[in-house]
Design a protein around this nucleic acid. Sequence first.
DNA 1: GATGAATGAGTTTTCATTCAT
DNA 2: CATGAATGAAAACTCATTCAT
Lengths: 205, 205, 205, 205
Amino acid sequence: MASPTNRRSSDKRERILSAAVKVFARNGYYNAKVSEVAREAGVADGTIYLYFKNKDDLLIKAFEDRMTWINDRLRSELAKVQGDALDKLHRFLELHILLAIDERELAEFITVELRQSSKFIKEYKNQKFGEFLGLLSEVIKQGQDEGLIRHNIDRHTVSRALFGACDEVLLSLVLRKEVPEGVLDARMAELTGLFIEGLRAHRQL
Amino acid sequence: MASPTNRRSSDKRERILSAAVKVFARNGYYNAKVSEVAREAGVADGTIYLYFKNKDDLLIKAFEDRMTWINDRLRSELAKVQGDALDKLHRFLELHILLAIDERELAEFITVELRQSSKFIKEYKNQKFGEFLGLLSEVIKQGQDEGLIRHNIDRHTVSRALFGACDEVLLSLVLRKEVPEGVLDARMAELTGLFIEGLRAHRQL
Amino acid sequence: MASPTNRRSSDKRERILSAAVKVFARNGYYNAKVSEVAREAGVADGTIYLYFKNKDDLLIKAFEDRMTWINDRLRSELAKVQGDALDKLHRFLELHILLAIDERELAEFITVELRQSSKFIKEYKNQKFGEFLGLLSEVIKQGQDEGLIRHNIDRHTVSRALFGACDEVLLSLVLRKEVPEGVLDARMAELTGLFIEGLRAHRQL
Amino acid sequence: MASPTNRRSSDKRERILSAAVKVFARNGYYNAKVSEVAREAGVADGTIYLYFKNKDDLLIKAFEDRMTWINDRLRSELAKVQGDALDKLHRFLELHILLAIDERELAEFITVELRQSSKFIKEYKNQKFGEFLGLLSEVIKQGQDEGLIRHNIDRHTVSRALFGACDEVLLSLVLRKEVPEGVLDARMAELTGLFIEGLRAHRQL
DNA sequence: GATGAATGAGTTTTCATTCAT
DNA sequence: CATGAATGAAAACTCATTCAT
């Protein structure tokens, strides 16, 4: 947490982050203006610089803050799952979809800015996204330990593949158009099935 | 003649497109300067505007030109495949990997700018990328017709998922770091296996 | 507040308008650089764009602002005239000359940019200049009503003719060279006489 | 006449001048592009620079060429007039109107660019326009010699006034809108009357 | 802390002019 | 002579960032 820590201040900080997510999601980082974020947050342009070093910093902090929230949520939800690793994997994908539906702007923000931020912003190693992939990877590992998931597959690669697949599909389904009731569930169920079948350790193998 | 179309000219146009791919891949569209593209192409800044309407147009034309090349290549290579749909799918993924290796900059350019261009550049419907997905979708369909791929799965969704997964994995493997000999092949083989297993129509199911 | 409107701000706006009149008068609109207007006004280049949409807008606003001032001045001075319409006409021409002498830059600015602005700046109907001609036209009408000015002459045409004649003469006399004491008065008196004689309703006609 | 003097060359030179008049009249000097003049003339951009030093030179040469033509025409037409100076003055104004009607583009070009060219193009003393005014001045002088025009008026000033008045009225009548049949003649007759009355030497004075 | 007017560096784009063919 | 593709200097405009209030 940055300098201001009293109630009112951290409220303002959060309003700015929230506005940043919204504005960056809408226009993309490079098309977004700091003054628009300020307007959306209901603060003066200069105020943003009391809480964040510059525009880049605002992007990174927004990204980290939201990813932390997502990771925490995933962790606690996965802990609640009563069942094996495949059940967890199922729940993981489900939570991912719910995020895209419930927090559309946030999902859009992450999807679009993930590559930009990690690639073009100097000296930024995207640790929070690494954590996210780590959670997924952990589930895969557990599945392998339980003998439910094949061993002849690298779990880090699978994690990335899973994320990439979901990201792309959600991008096209949820983030760009109105999706008819039921279609989303159907598609994501198929996708979940695809991966679970692909990963399953077959007895005869 | 309004726009230059003779031999020397189209050579220059190609040099500019090529430079654009390189510079956009290196810095991203918004960080790239037109003058840097010009320098890379060995032409004056103004020359770019003889061939392209503006910076946006340069991005779109570079994208379309390269996607056309990729689609043509995929189409002709897939036509040569002697075998069933799963063989074609295999080949498709293989070609995708080869592209990332042989034309690293192009792959990076497409990966990073794909979302930007279709999302933030007004009135641009990314038709060429749709074609790419269509090729993949066609292979899936053939597999379903041949009884090799499950029918209870939407082939357009699968196409996107496949693309997203490969894109993300390649991005992390090839595009960002040096990959030790053999690792890439291993990872992509696993990925191919994952999808082929996931898609396969099991007799007993 | 979107555009600055407090005391200090409107002071700055006025400084920019004033600088614009000076610089546009000196170099003409197309040869004038926004940065030169900024320097003359003692502000940064960007500041101009806080008060005006673009260079065209600056020209139009400068024009309108100054024409409003001139029209107000003419109106109030004409109201003070004790006498008939010919006295008013006399005073009108006198005020016109005084303007050219006292506010040389302003006169030069208006003279030179009048045609440009109304002809080449899209969608700009020069209402303020119309008002100016309207004031003159009103005096002619009054003269006709009083029987001092011939009726067989269109008062709008006469207004334009009067303006055109004065404009051209002043341009050559005042705006380009140093005029020896007395010559100006003599010339303008002749001009006034010319028009008053030309307009006078002769008993025998 | 410049370097090229054979038939084909001077034909091309004339085509360029003609195109320049048209394009400058349409868009104004500063908005006109050399390449548009070239297109209009049916020559290559570079060709213009074989006949004229630069864009400024093209403007000046077009101006001088056309003014020479106008002056010659006026001179020869005035020579034909059988009558006194007032008849000549009448004819002068008539010819001026005819020019605006028959050679609308030329009139527009001269009207709009006259001030620009003489004011902002370095080291250019508009000699041809001086000649034009001289012709008018000569008629006034003759009228004064014949006792038809008052002596207590400077003939150079009157010349300018006359030109300015006609220019402004024609600008509003002919050059900007469609004029109903007859209105133009009526207006110009009034204007002619205005000046002739204004200038007339009254016996009783 | 908060404000928002002011700043000015940085970028795209235009277009008169050149010169190799 | 003629061409027109190429040049690159110049200018308008934007917007992240600062700082006096």
